[in-house]
Amino acid sequence: MDRLDFTQGVVRTRVLEKKLLTFGTLERLIDAGTMDEAMKILKETDYGSSFSLLTENNDFETILFAELKRSFQIMDDVSPDSSIVNLLRLKYDYHNLKVLLKEIILDKDFSHLYLPIGTMDIKQIKTFILNENLQDVDPPVRAAIVEVLTDYKITRDPQRIGIILDRLYIYHFLKIIEAIKSPLFIEYAKAMIDFINVRTLIRVKRQKKDRKFLEEVLLSKGNIEKEKFLHSFTDSIDQIIRNFRNEKIAKGLIPALQSYKETNRFEDFEKEMDNYLIKLIREAKHIHFGPEPIFAYLLAKETEMKNLRIILVSKANEIPPQMVRKRMRESYV
């Protein structure tokens, strides 16, 4: 891929970046007294265009989803190479696959759980599976479907559906990234895998599962070797902090682990993780030729929506502003 092909897309992305919510707007949203007030503030922003979709029950999820869909459509238009946008759509594809497979195994109707922003036509895949004819399905997806279904026949364990698809999603993601050949993307993906692995290590310890299970759920292809996590399985949290002190992601990981140690909760860990990744992707601000700004914009949009969701859910549950402020992720701009 020629990096210079992205020149036009990058400039358009820069203009769009200006429309991302600013720190000030987020602050105003946090301080809004009621849900209605917050919605009024949101209506003045770029999100206003989706307000017409709002039904009378004031469900902000409709707006968030419409906005997500719109961002993807804009980026489809902006990006000369569809693989960049598809990279971020992949998450929703695999989500849809999970829903689809659970639907088929349980013979239930989960159609309300589909997120129609993936790249695949999930209805078509469903008919393919039901007709037991997977020839026309994308090879990695076909492999995923076959693996999940055969595994379920043997183990009858619904958790494994999630585990297998999560793993295959990450590998699929990495495969696309490796084809794009952008060092920033690779660094992003590896840092994400490392963070997820550390989180998994602690979660598995908390869930009191055994080492075998850990080996099963750990992702390979990160910067940190899988063995290192397995070795750390019996270590205390202090020891784990020491073990990973010299890793590449330590700058974000160590504060995350420290906060986990203090509170015994993951709240801050996940925040630190998101912050580290968004800081990493901020590098794209200095890139003028290449796919990175487009990728970064979509990630920024997703982070923004995460923040909005935190604010709006908190408003609905009457959580005080200072609690909300503590949870806010750093934004891209």
Binding site: G9, V10, V11, V15
Partner: peptide, 14 residues
């Protein structure tokens, strides 16, 4: 050409 591409991107939005 390169700058033209960039500016035409800008013209779409602004």
């Amino acid at each position: 050409g390169l700058v033209g591409e960039a500016t035409s991107g800008l013209m779409i939005e602004e």
